[in-house]
């Protein structure tokens, strides 16, 4: 089921064209997704804002994942098993348009993404 062929694959990226939240990405991204899920509670968002790295460590995130979150690297977070529905809660802490996150997934500039994918 995973990974329908996609003519628009970008070289140099290793997110599959259509990643599905299956057993493997559940396993891979579990801690990241759990941390992101926690941001649904206002107290957690406060703790995250007050000391982000400490907050991430509390959920046992490894170095690579903490770096991806710190950089708000949406491409890398998904590569590490993050699922967009969860990591969107990170984007709510310092708001960023979902189309920027989409562009990062596609490996395109925001402008190209809006034009080529969304026809805007």
């Amino acid at each position: 089921m995973a990974n329908a062929p996609d003519d628009q694959n970008q070289p140099g990226t290793d997110i599959p064209p259509t990643p599905l939240l299956d057993r493997d990405s559940n396993l891979r991204g579990y801690k990241l997704n759990k941390m992101a899920m926690s941001l649904g509670a206002p107290e957690s968002r406060q703790a995250f804002k007050a000391d982000e790295d400490a907050y991430l460590r509390r959920f046992g995130l490894d170095d690579a994942t903490r770096a991806a979150v710190a950089a708000r690297d949406w491409h890398e977070m998904v590569r590490l098993g993050g699922n967009l529905f969860f990591i969107l809660k990170i984007s709510a802490v310092d708001p960023v348009p979902i189309t920027s996150i989409g562009a990062a997934q596609a490996g395109m500039s925001h402008e190209d993404f809006l034009k080529e994918r969304l026809g805007k």
Binding site: Q8, Q10, R117
Partner: peptide
């Protein structure tokens, strides 16, 4: 719609 992966933005 598709939100993730290289096919993100698919319509």
């Amino acid at each position: 719609h598709q939100l993730q992966g290289r096919r993100a933005g698919f319509l």
